[in-house]
């Protein structure tokens, strides 16, 4: 596939945000239960911003497409950090080069459009939730003060050269505990990770300004139409795909 030629296609129109694009897996590298999967998209998506996700489906896969965060990329080439668990992620995370898939997007509000601009953010990431935070660090270092990105198995480091990871199996402790220890008064917080990680952060951070959590929910449309991804917030339903996935902590009800 000639990726360079494809990058010169006309800019996507508004409607094309909703069209499924044919894509192919270019490279898969796995370690520690995760994989970085790089794909080439035949007719490019609009360039994704950090915090945005795409909907992914595989031939013969489930009817409901899966939301996956962008780890890096420009719309013609994208990479993901996939936790090898569950039907679609297992197939994707263990795919061979050439595996066809479809993507549409990018969807969701970028972190830059959600975060209050008057401060810098302490990033707290866990598991596959570190993917969009890595993208933010790479693209918008000006928004980031510190980052604690945690994985269970230190072998994952091989997948993300240049990214500092802490690993539970190397007695580094959890990302949440470490973040709470080092967080300074003036820093904001952007947390993305498993529910247990967010649970550990809620109580100590409640009432503090500039705290944002990224919420995961099952999705169908990804565009704010079906109400399938909605979660009950502090003041009514929140639509994760359209209004999130990052929300100010004060808008969230907890336990979610």
């Amino acid at each position: 596939m000639n990726v360079r030629a494809e990058r010169h296609e006309a800019a996507p129109t508004a409607g094309s945000l909703f069209l499924w694009r044919q894509a192919r897996v270019i490279r898969v590298e796995g370690a520690g239960g995760y994989a970085v999967v790089e794909i080439a998209v035949a007719s490019p998506l609009s360039p994704p911003e950090p915090g945005q996700f795409v909907m992914v489906r595989l031939p013969g896969g489930p009817v409901l497409p899966r939301p996956i965060s962008v780890l890096s990329g420009d719309g013609a080439m994208l990479s993901f950090l996939i936790k090898i668990d569950g039907e679609v992620r297992r197939r994707l995370g263990t795919a061979r080069a050439g595996q066809p898939l479809e993507v549409r997007g990018p969807y969701g509000r970028s972190y830059a459009s959600v975060l209050a601009p008057d401060r810098r953010y302490f990033l707290v990431g866990g598991g596959s939730g570190i993917a969009p935070l890595c993208f933010l660090q790479q693209r918008r270092p000006d928004l980031v003060s510190h980052a604690v990105l945690g994985v269970r198995n230190g072998a994952v480091r091989a997948l993300l050269p240049g990214v500092q990871l802490i690993a539970e199996d190397e007695r580094d402790g959890t990302a949440s505990a470490r973040a709470l220890r080092f967080l300074a008064e003036e820093e904001g917080v952007l947390a993305c990770g498993p529910k247990g990680m967010l649970d550990a952060l809620v109580h100590p951070l409640r009432g503090r300004a500039g705290v944002y959590f990224v919420i995961e929910e099952r999705m169908a449309c990804g565009i704010g139409a079906c109400q399938g991804c909605s979660v009950l917030g502090a003041a009514g339903a929140l639509c994760v795909c359209r209004d999130g996935p990052a929300f100010p902590l004060e808008e969230l009800a907890w336990p979610a």
Binding site: L64, R218, A220, Q227, S230, V231, A256
Partner: peptide, 22 residues
């Protein structure tokens, strides 16, 4: 407001929803 999350689940060749008239 509708029903609590999760509101979607897979079904073989289909989907299940529990949106609840949001």
């Amino acid at each position: 407001a509708g029903n609590p999350a999760p509101r979607l689940a897979d079904a073989p060749a289909g989907t299940l929803n529990s949106v609840g008239l949001t």
